[in-house]
Design a protein around this nucleic acid. Structure first.
Lengths: 198, 198
DNA sequence: GTATACTTACTTACCGATAGGTCAGTGTTG
DNA sequence: CAACACTGACCTATCGGTAAGTAAGTATAC
């Protein structure tokens, strides 16, 4: 065995994160074990402990990477489309992409299990939602200023409604295995924000 | 020890259901064990197996009782208030009552863990959402006919949006321990449905 | 009315499997 | 050789679940 990483080789740590991430998003943090990951990757449990001291550390690393990737995706949405409604649509599309793989939003899943999580993971989950909220708030304010987004109440409360609406739509759509349930809700939220109220 | 139930004594089976229900709503189905329940009630694990053959059976019984109670609560809403907007507000209030105890909707929690549940529990979770959807659909149609609820698209899709919106608002509000997050979302959903579009 | 049979509601003691985690090596690489 | 990336063997605690026994109450037979 080489032991040395080749070009194009993802590296064990990354492969562990990938497997664990998918397991959390499908089964929840309390729904898989170190043994499950080891079996899937064809390595041993101590190899996992070598890369991530404990399940709690792995969990925290998972949220960190997910949040970073999500932040990058939001920046990409910011850069690729101009007006606020398109950015909102791009935001909803990030959720849809996750759901297509029959997965729940990582932090939506962890929000359900929140009370059983080690405190560092709890803080990281909150951080994810805060970040989403800030980005959405900015877009909503932009749209209000541009005159192409309409809502009553604060941009902050509206941002929270959008996050809750999309997370909830994912949560309920997944048991049915029906993406269109999410799409209808997503379209409805977008429509509500792009329709002027008298 | 008498072994015989006294008046006002809840009965072991009911006490088990009560404890398990709270544990699922706070920690998730994969976040507690038979030992946890036994310790809380001051009985032994085999006593649990006497009343509920296995954790799967207990889980199924849990959803059954919850769905029945929810159905009763919906009938109570139907009976106590007249117009559709008030009924919708009553519906949202059922969610708020759950959240006040720092609990997630039982079936919202189980929706997150859906992929790890035994099939009978999966079916029962779907049944709960179907029932909610049917009730809401009826109310939405009533409101549309009365001219005091406004929405585009089908009553069915709108019902699904309401369920997703409220479940998601609960999901995200709970980590923050902030009921007002839910209330703002709930009020927003109600407002969107009671505001005429041009 | 009392002995017998049976049910209810448990307990003690235990099972194999799995949970997360540790430690002492080991082969490879620069 | 020293750092890196592991493996094999093992640990304790806990998981859901079971087998056997028991105290107390109920129904039935005579």
């Amino acid at each position: 065995m080489t032991g040395r990483r080749e070009r194009g080789d993802a590296g064990t740590a990354t492969r562990v994160l990938d497997a664990a991430e998918r397991m959390v998003q499908v089964r929840g943090f309390n729904g898989f074990s170190y043994a499950d990951i080891a079996a899937e990757l064809g390595i041993t449990k101590p190899a996992l402990h070598y890369h991530f001291a404990g399940k709690a550390d792995l969990g925290a690393a998972l949220i960190g990477r997910y949040t970073t990737r999500f932040t990058d995706a939001l920046a990409e949405v910011d850069a690729s489309v101009g007006d606020a409604p398109s950015k909102l649509a791009g935001y909803a599309d990030l959720y849809l992409t996750v759901l297509r793989d029959r997965k729940m939003c990582l932090c939506g899943m962890l929000a359900a299990e929140y009370q059983t999580l080690p405190p560092p993971m709890q803080d990281a989950v909150i951080g994810f939602f805060d970040q989403n909220e800030r980005w959405l708030e900015k877009i909503l304010e932009q749209g209000q200023a541009e005159g192409n987004l309409y809502f009553e109440g604060s941009a902050r409360d509206t941002a929270r409604m959008v996050i809750g609406g999309l997370e909830g739509a994912m949560l309920v759509a997944r048991p049915y295995g029906d993406i269109s349930r999410f799409q209808a809700a997503s379209a409805g939220i977008l429509a509500a924000l792009t329709t002027a109220t008298p």
